[in-house]
Amino acid sequence: MSVFSASVTGARLATGFSLPVLVVLSLGFVAVPLTASPYVLEAILLPFLALSLAGLGLNLLTGYCGQVSLGSAAFMAVGAFAAYNFDLRTGLPIPVSIVLAALTAAVIGLVFGLPSLRLRGFYLAVSTLAAQFFVQWALTKFSWFSNGSPSGIIAAPVIELAGLRLDSAVGRYLFSLTIVTAITLLVHRIVSGPEGVNLIAVRDNETAAKVIGVPVLRTKLVAFALSSGIIGIAGVLWAFTYLRTVEPAGFNLDRSFQILFIVIIGGLATIRGTFLGAGLIVVFPLLLGRLSAFAFDGLIDAGLIKLIERIVLGGTIILFLIAEPNGLSAILSRLSARLRALVRRG
């Protein structure tokens, strides 16, 4: 379990934004919308944002609180379908539907988090699989969830804010980015405050936490609820801004593993690591496809590329677990420390 006790930089961050965060935010909010092509927005940035948010939610649960979950995609599905149904049946503004969807996912997450009060590690991971299979089954079985659509695939509603239709790629991107930024700040506030102490205490030594009076059960359930709520919103972004369809098939076990890999590759219990991990997971297959098209001129068929992608990704994960359990985030820390030393010397 050494992976799950990976250290966090406990240093308090100042309440203001640090310089790198400001640079990234201004790039994201100003430079990207002005310069990025629709392809970059649609194929890279929109899935990146949704998966980053899902990774962030899972990191709160797995990285900070030490509870393994293989049901992330299920909570994404709950969020997406809940938002669709709230929007369809109540006609409330989209942001309200999204908040209600997050609450729904949080409640479902809480229910599937109950086994964590008794189970740990592997056994808990297996019990979260129940969420994965149950949710997918329920969404396919009861056509009410997809409003009786025969194919089960439904078009997501267009996001409208105060009469403004965010139909274009840039509009959806900015909507997604705003939500991801807000939730990232929220998560940062949670993990660097008193609740973060509870989460990490439960992860690092449950017995000691219990004896000194950290409310272990409550902390675990809060972690499950918060995490599932956030992953639920990620599901809304995935369906409403990226795919623009809502379907259970996209939220399968593969997606759950993908989110877990984002967290492991990026670094457990680091916020920026999650974004680095999501970036790698999204960009890597595209690069591989480009590379094979360029180098082998289409000789390798798409199915084979898919296989190669899996092999390389699997290898990468094993490599990370062995060589750098603290993930991309730790590599970035080392690089920036070295860079700073160079600058000081030069």
Partner: peptide
């Protein structure tokens, strides 16, 4: 102790 926390956070726990 909780290795992932600072001394201050450990004591505050």
């Amino acid at each position: 102790l909780f290795p992932g926390l600072t001394v201050e956070q450990n004591v505050a726990a």
